[in-house]
């Protein structure tokens, strides 16, 4: 008996070599290809109960808070929201008119008209994901038609994109993740460039603009629709500071995301509308 024990307890060198030999190809495959995406999606379903249990304390906390909110507070909020809806409805009327006009003008030029984007509200699941990266977990998954690469926004602007899905949850990589890049253009003059995440919670960088570029503090950056991943025209960030170093050929530009990345409890998943060519005659009849 003691012989067997002594033999078994010696350092498991064979096992560690086996584990290393298994892990490294796994990481390479996961990084370089999409073969593991489905397997990950299936296994994530098994993990979901753990994540659910982990998010319960937060949910209970919020629930208790809501229970003790007084009637008066709700009435005030209701009143405020009612007024807001009225304002938004007024703005919507103008928007609709402009949209119709835009479609008509596009038809005259025989250009493709955009159909409005579809959106779905998803709620955050409050769990910790990979430390020191910028990711979120939400409660909508492939069952709701979510797909990898889908754009995610909040009320103010683009938040990021879906990078992982399972049947009932999906992972969002935020704009600020060090591995994230998004094609944008300056709203003021249409200057196109690419906006990168830095890893800091509220900072983005524009590394590819030269000292002669027409960009100033406070410029709003919107999605350009290049690469076809993000729908065009959504606000992304605002230029915060521009540093010009005579020794560097590129400007050092810091931009802040306009979406409230760390405060949103609910996010919107966007299905970009498909482009359709509006026939000229029908548009003229209107």
């Amino acid at each position: 008996m003691s012989h067997a024990r002594a033999a078994q307890v010696s350092p498991p060198i064979a096992r560690i070599l086996f584990a290393i030999a298994l892990s490294i190809p796994l990481m390479v495959i996961d990084q370089r290809s999409h073969y593991l995406r489905d397997i990950r999606s299936i296994l994530s379903t098994v993990i979901y109960p753990i994540q659910y249990v982990a998010s319960v304390p937060q949910k209970v906390g919020t629930g208790v808070g809501e229970f003790f909110t007084s009637r008066q507070v709700y009435q005030l909020e209701n009143e405020r929201l009612r007024r807001k809806v009225l304002k938004l409805k007024a703005a919507q009327q103008k928007h609709n008119a402009l949209l119709a006009e835009n479609t008509r003008l596009r038809a005259l030029f025989k250009a493709a008209a955009k159909v409005a984007d579809k959106a779905l509200i998803a709620e955050l699941i409050e769990v910790n994901l990979e430390p020191f990266t910028q990711k979120l977990l939400v409660d909508k998954g492939s069952r709701d038609g979510v797909f990898v690469g889908q754009a995610v926004i909040d009320a103010n602007g683009i938040m990021g994109q879906i990078t992982g899905i399972s049947p009932s949850t999906s992972t969002i990589t935020l704009l600020t993740d060090p591995g994230h890049a998004i094609p944008v253009q300056v709203q003021r003059n249409g200057l196109r460039t690419v906006l990168f995440g830095t890893g800091a919670t509220n900072e983005l960088s524009l590394p590819h603009l030269t000292a002669t570029s027409d960009i100033i503090n406070g410029d709003v950056l919107v999605t350009s629709g290049m690469a076809g991943r993000f729908p065009a025209g959504y606000p992304v960030a605002r230029v915060e500071s521009i540093t010009s170093d005579a020794n560097e050929s590129f400007l050092e530009i810091v931009a802040l995301p306009v979406a409230r990345l760390n405060h949103s409890k609910e996010v919107l998943l966007i299905w970009p509308g498909s482009e359709v060519v509006v026939p000229v005659k029908r548009a003229e009849k209107k």
Binding site: A19, I24, V127, E130, T163
Partner: peptide, 23 residues
Amino acid sequence: LMQGSLLGQNALAKSVIAFLAVA
């Protein structure tokens, strides 16, 4: 799987930890 990190990243780290702890 839970953190959404690269598959095998923590697996490698934790196997090395286990190996050293046993050793």
